[in-house]
Structure formats: C-alpha cells, structure tokens
Design a protein around this nucleic acid. Sequence first.
DNA 1: CCGGATCCGACAGGATACTG
DNA 2: CAGTATCCTGTCGGATCCGG
Lengths: 130, 130
Amino acid sequence: MKPRHVHRSEDCRAVSEILQRVGDKWTVLVVGKLGAGRMRFSELRTAVGGISQKMLTTTLRGLERDGFVTRTQYPTIPPRVEYELTDLGFELLEPVHALGEWARKNTARVNEARQKFDAACPEGRSGSHF
Amino acid sequence: MKPRHVHRSEDCRAVSEILQRVGDKWTVLVVGKLGAGRMRFSELRTAVGGISQKMLTTTLRGLERDGFVTRTQYPTIPPRVEYELTDLGFELLEPVHALGEWARKNTARVNEARQKFDAACPEGRSGSHF
DNA sequence: CCGGATCCGACAGGATACTG
DNA sequence: CAGTATCCTGTCGGATCCGG
C-alpha cells in the first residue's frame, strides 16, 4: 500500500466537484441507460424507473449543459425528443463504471461494517432515543 | 466505442448509491487527505480547509460507520483523536482517483460546454428569470 | 481538543396541475 | 409526448453555544 504522493488541493476540489455533479440521485442512472444508445424522453423515464418527469428534465438539462448529452427535438405532433450521449459522456462513463465495479464488489463489505457499527453505536457514544 | 453490454438495473442502483455516499461536499476531500496517513481531528480540519467542525465530525462518523476509516481515541487531557484509512478506504481511493484524473483532464471541456450552453440558453428555451 | 446539541437558511427532489 | 410552474417536504450544511 504505497503512499503514492498526494495530489494538490485544487485537484481534490476538482474531484469533489465532479463527484457532487455526478453524485446526485439520478445522473448516473440516466447516463447509464443512455450508454446503451439514444433514447427518447418517456423511454428513458420508464427505463430508469421511479424518476419523476421533473427530475428527469432537470437531470437531462444539467447533462446537456455540461456537454454530456445532446438533445434532438423533432418538431412533430406529438413532439418527439431524443437524447444521446456525447463523446464526453461516454468518456465519463468509463471511470464511473470503474467505480461501479468497485461498488458491486464492496457493497457487501460496507453494509457489514455499517451493521456492526450500528449495533455497537447506540450504547457506545450517543446514548439517546430508542 | 463498443456498446459493451449494459449492466443490470440493480448494478446501476449500486453505483448511484455509492456515488451519493461519496458525492457529498466533504467526503472525498477528507478521504483524500487521510490517504496521506493518519491524522488527528484538528490537523484534518486545517488540511481540508473551510470545513466546519460539525461537518468534519459528521463526515468522519459516516466514514467510520461504513468502514472506511478507524477512529482512535486517546483518553488524555486534552483529548487526542486520530483517524486513519482502513484497507477498504484505500481501495475506495483507487477508483476515486481514476475519476479524479478524469476530472482534472476534462473540467476545461465541461466548463467550455457549460459556457456555450449558458450563452445560448436564455433566449433559447427558458426565456424566464429577471 | 474534540465533538455533541440546537437553530436556521438553502436546496434537492417529489406530487400535482397546466401548456403546446 | 415533452416540458414548465407551483407547492411542499426532508435533508445538507453552516454558525454558535455548551460539555467532557
């Protein structure tokens, strides 16, 4: 476990910012689904599941703003809007997938530690409530 | 850019959860600093910079709960508490660093896209606000 | 020195109703 | 079908005071 020289503070800030950007409730889910190919709004909505149209719109706006997805609107009746990952979006997907792999492999360990901590905590330090 | 078969929904959820876990304002900063070695509370506080003691405490509690750091308390006067990354914490650091590298390389592109979008947006679709 | 308790503002995000 | 506007809630995060 080498110390591997520490990054500078500004870099950490950058990490933190991108993490907060991507770390909201729906962004990665949407990007993940979009990774399979271009989709239209409702398609995406049902694919993700459990997301409100407001949040889907908000999320997609943000992703569009940051250049992760493109929005293509067909002026037909009824309207048809399709979203697609940009190259930048695909590139983002890679480190996210890496983190995803980590998550798949280690959620069990995390949950284990969590249960252990929760079992030891109530009487441990914060002896409040039930 | 191969399609690389899509992951199952549950996996995406796992990614989303770990991302939300790590995606708060201070977690990665703290973990990053702790990557350099064990530190005591105030040391960490000044190292991170700009964090309130409440948030540092909260963040560390969460990290301890999930098994990412260990908390060692020396019953001296004045009290001395040290925090150190666990193996799990170090392992988490790797994919996070990967994302960090991505962030360092691409924040410029994101900001560029953002400015372009913001310049085109006001008259574009949401002609609201002040 | 460490961190718990409390109050408070800001914002994320859900439900619903309405428009083109 | 896609999106906006409004309301309402819970949570995040900061400031401050207090205790061991």
